[in-house]
Design a protein around this nucleic acid. Structure first.
Lengths: 237, 237
DNA sequence: GGTGGAAAATTGGTAATACCACTTGACCAG
DNA sequence: CTGGTCAAGTGGTATTACCAATTTTCCACC
């Protein structure tokens, strides 16, 4: 099956991409107000509903905020729906570390909850995720798919859909540009092997239905990830 | 900056939330095809462009895939393989309670972190939020704006942007239709006065920079909220 | 000159309608 | 069985209209 299906390029995506490019290039910096929908439509030679669809996409991405009767504002570090944020600059500069810290807090509690209520099928799913990671390592590729699945499966084992959504969201944040750049930099099989061992310790504690051990094992894993990340960060900067 | 801007709930988000809920509840499992746009618009009593805007949002989230001429298909991460279906019914029946449980886990840790690192201005912001709640109560309106601000300000006091985003996301989930229906049902000043007192206990512990007490106070508050919610839930069903 | 309120202008929100492009399924011919 | 055609259905885009919210302008009054 060598053929890649050809999907037509929807107009809203084209418009969103163009606006995103203008934001990224600095034409519209954080806090700036975009031209009105009607003007954008005229300038881009498209209809206003198409512009609106593009803006919905950008709004869902968190790149812009739409204010009724006022306009469309570019979001970004230090800009949150018109509020002046005390933590804005910290957020801008420390994103990836904050993410890891947030994961430390949240995923360790997820591991503890999972240890309390995990079902056999969920244990099997977590093991499958480890298996997938191993296969990816064997194929000389970054085991990101398996990694993601491991963490999501643990969240699912909590039996709490909201926590699944949170872990998923944190994972998606993990695919942001800064984090990803660093991941590419410090990719090495040895590090992943350490991570695998840490994952196995988490699974062992969950299997043993020991919440405290599960929390502790996940904290250890994410703390090690934090350290690995810090080492890589210092090297790059 | 004591006032939280009140954003009206855009129709596309309401529609997207309802569709997302149907997907999560299993009404439309992975691979299923949603009703046509025109039918959805008719069934929901809205215009087709509004449905399209909602579908754009869901598509950007990766929850659905839109095929020109064919229809809209559910992608639905977390419901991709057979094992995940074991937790499907739990999701359907326990959505609002799951949310509260997730908040119990996450926001209690946020309160503890806030107690460790809170700054004066952040304390003032949390107090302002309580002030807003009081003003809303005095005006005989549900102090939802102040409530939201209270929780967000605590997340901000953690100094961790990712946690702010998580708490914000959980709040947004809180405005889903099922949760909101129940909130309307059990609205009563006496309950909010209890909640205010619990909030004050949280603030007191954070002010005292006592992480354990802050965690404990937030857990108490959210546990009480859980109980209030359960009582209301039993009455309604 | 300054302030407050009303009106006008602007901007986004939603709906209705029209028409086009693509997909799917049915049917028929070879 | 395969390929072609056609009709129906579905999403895509555009135009127009009107409503709701916000901002700006104007004017009266002190």
């Amino acid at each position: 099956m060598p053929f890649q299906s050809i999907e037509p390029r929807r107009l809203y995506r084209q418009i969103a991409d163009q606006i995103r490019g203008l934001i990224r290039s600095g034409e519209f910096p954080a806090g700036a107000r975009l031209p009105p929908e009607r003007d954008l439509a005229k300038q881009l030679g498209v209809s206003r509903p198409s512009v609106r669809e593009a803006l919905i996409a950008l709004e869902v991405e968190g790149l812009v905020a739409v204010r009724i009767g006022s306009g469309i504002y570019v979001m970004g570090p230090g800009v949150k729906n018109g509020e002046s944020e005390l933590t804005g600059t910290v957020h801008a500069e420390a994103g990836p570390f904050e993410l890891l810290r947030a994961r430390y807090v949240i995923e360790s509690e997820c591991a503890a909850l999972a240890a309390k209520s995990v079902k056999k099928a969920q244990l099997a799913a977590i093991e499958d995720a480890l298996g997938q990671m191993q296969r990816e390592l064997d194929d000389d590729s970054q085991p990101l798919g398996g990694d993601r699945m491991f963490h999501l499966r643990i969240a699912e084992a909590t039996g709490n859909g909201a926590l699944v959504a949170v872990v998923k969201m944190l994972w998606e944040e993990r695919t942001g540009p800064l984090y990803k750049q660093l991941e590419d930099h410090y990719d090495s099989p040895a590090l992943w092997i350490s991570a695998m061992a840490e994952h196995r310790a988490v699974l062992k504690a969950i299997t043993a239905r020991d919440p405290a051990a599960a929390r502790s094992a996940m904290q250890r894993h994410l703390n090690q990830a934090y350290k690995r990340f810090s080492t890589g960060w210092d090297t790059l900067h």
